[in-house]
């Protein structure tokens, strides 16, 4: 995968969550990547140099790489349970 593009995507997510506060933004970015990125994209960003990422995105990758499953920080990543109606058609 084009690592420059993945870095840019991760930083875009981090920067747009920055307004909810640093720690929440880290968790939100981690949750976002977990929910929407394909395994090969995750593997590529996990293997990449964290220094190439902004602070929020870099820490988010650390969170995910350590095996933590962050809870949703945004309704956009909070999906319906099996019998639920509503929520998300984000892409």
């Amino acid at each position: 995968m084009d690592i420059a593009k993945l870095r840019r995507m991760a930083d875009q997510i981090g920067n747009n969550y920055a307004a909810i506060g640093h720690d929440n933004a880290v968790l939100a970015t981690a949750d976002h990547i977990r929910k929407f990125w394909d395994p090969r994209m995750k593997a590529a960003i996990f293997a990449d140099d964290r220094a190439a990422l902004g602070d929020i995105a870099g820490r988010a990758i650390d969170v995910l790489a350590s095996g933590i499953t962050p809870t949703p920080q945004s309704g956009g990543t909070d999906f319906n349970s099996v019998n639920e109606v509503g929520h998300n058609d984000a892409g």
Binding site: G75, G76, V85, G86, H87, N88, D89
Partner: peptide, 16 residues
């Protein structure tokens, strides 16, 4: 319209 899904789901709870 993928941003519609994300944006409205975040704020209203459903994307339509």
């Amino acid at each position: 319209h993928s941003p519609t899904g994300f944006g409205l789901s975040t704020t209203f709870g459903t994307s339509a």
